[in-house]
């Protein structure tokens, strides 16, 4: 109370006004921030528009059958006499590799997230987190190398399959790539559970495992679901590693050691060789649109599921 302005209100002058440039600067910043927020919508629409524009002509041409495009397994884009644009084998390839990857990655990823968040000591936790982030930073082409060399040899040696680059190889590589994402998002979700829940359960005499299964998993289920779906997104969209590891055969797989080709790998491999504007080129763009629709559906379902869970 030594400040005279505080002890004697009458000496306080008029409030200083803010400078004009400060006000303008703030408005400008606000506009920029708003624009960057809204731009996400714009980008999504623009990407969809441009990809669709390349693909559109083939949709309306006479010798193109949309049902065949979706559900035929015959993909002969460069044949002279029997051109066929059926992507069913590619869709099945994408889904089977992703499903296999998730079967392997989800238990491992969530298990690791639970261990890091609930059971490890502080030093071990830091070490593990840094290592896992490092794992996430490995470029996908390097994973492709590992699939092509190390993993394929192991698979041939263990299963006796004729080729080592196949569904199993691609699934394993994709699982290894998705685990870091599932772990780090899942760990964040578990860490976000208020400590008071753990304390409450512990004070009631719950063991660590009971706390994990009865308190943390129900409390964090939205976040854990998000972690899994981000893993799925990573797996569906991955291109280079699956291109190198799956064997690249357009073929409906009958076993784990059959070679497959995914939608993404197909686009990456063939787009460079398709003449611009040819129907092959346009069909490849249409495959892109299909991929876009699939990921959109996955994300939308995820969103609805999470909202549904939340409302309950």
């Amino acid at each position: 109370m030594t400040d005279p302005a505080l002890s004697n209100p009458r000496t306080v002058g008029p409030r200083p006004r803010r400078r004009a440039w400060a006000v303008i600067g703030e408005r400008a910043l606000e506009t920029v921030i708003r624009a960057s927020g809204v731009s996400a919508i714009l980008f999504v629409l623009a990407i969809f528009f441009f990809v669709f524009r390349e693909a559109a002509p083939v949709l309306f041409s006479d010798d193109f059958n949309f049902l065949e495009f979706l559900f035929s397994a015959q993909w002969y884009p460069t044949s002279d006499i029997n051109v066929r644009y059926g992507t069913w084998a590619l869709t099945v390839g994408s889904f089977s590799v992703t499903a296999l990857a998730m079967v392997l990655a989800v238990p491992f990823g969530l298990g690791a997230a639970i261990y890091i968040s609930e059971f490890s000591g502080p030093r071990q936790r830091e070490t593990l987190k840094i290592t896992i982030e490092l794992l996430a930073a490995i470029p996908s082409v390097v994973w492709g190398f590992i699939g092509l060399t190390v993993m394929s040899r192991i698979i041939v040696a263990l299963t006796g399959a004729p080729v080592g680059v196949n569904l199993l190889n691609g699934g394993l590589i994709l699982a290894l790539m998705s685990v870091p994402i599932i772990v780090s998002i899942g760990e964040d979700a578990l860490k976000a559970v208020p400590d008071s829940y753990r304390e409450a359960a512990q004070a009631l005499g719950a063991t660590r495992w009971q706390i994990v299964f009865r308190v943390l998993l129900p409390a964090a289920k939205n976040g854990l679901l998000a972690a899994v779906l981000l893993g799925v997104g990573r797996a569906v969209g991955e291109t280079m590693a699956v291109l190198m590891a799956t064997g690249h055969a357009v073929h409906l797989p009958h076993s784990l050691v059959d070679s497959v080709r995914t939608l993404t790998a197909n686009i990456a491999a063939e787009l460079g060789e398709a003449p611009v504007g040819s129907s092959h080129y346009q069909v490849l763009f249409l495959t892109g649109v299909l991929l876009f629709c699939i990921t959109f559906a996955v994300n939308l379902t995820a969103d609805l599921v999470i909202r549904g869970v939340r409302r309950k």
Binding site: P194, S196, Y197, E199, A200, A201, Q202, A203, L204, G205, A206, T207, Q210, R214, V215, P218, A219
Partner: peptide, 28 residues
Amino acid sequence: RKAVGMVFQRPNPLPISVYENVVFGLRI
């Protein structure tokens, strides 16, 4: 901890139903 129960400063019911909160102790 079964014999000595604890009530905390901030109410901390578990994020499950009222019913499950009450039977939580019995279940574990």
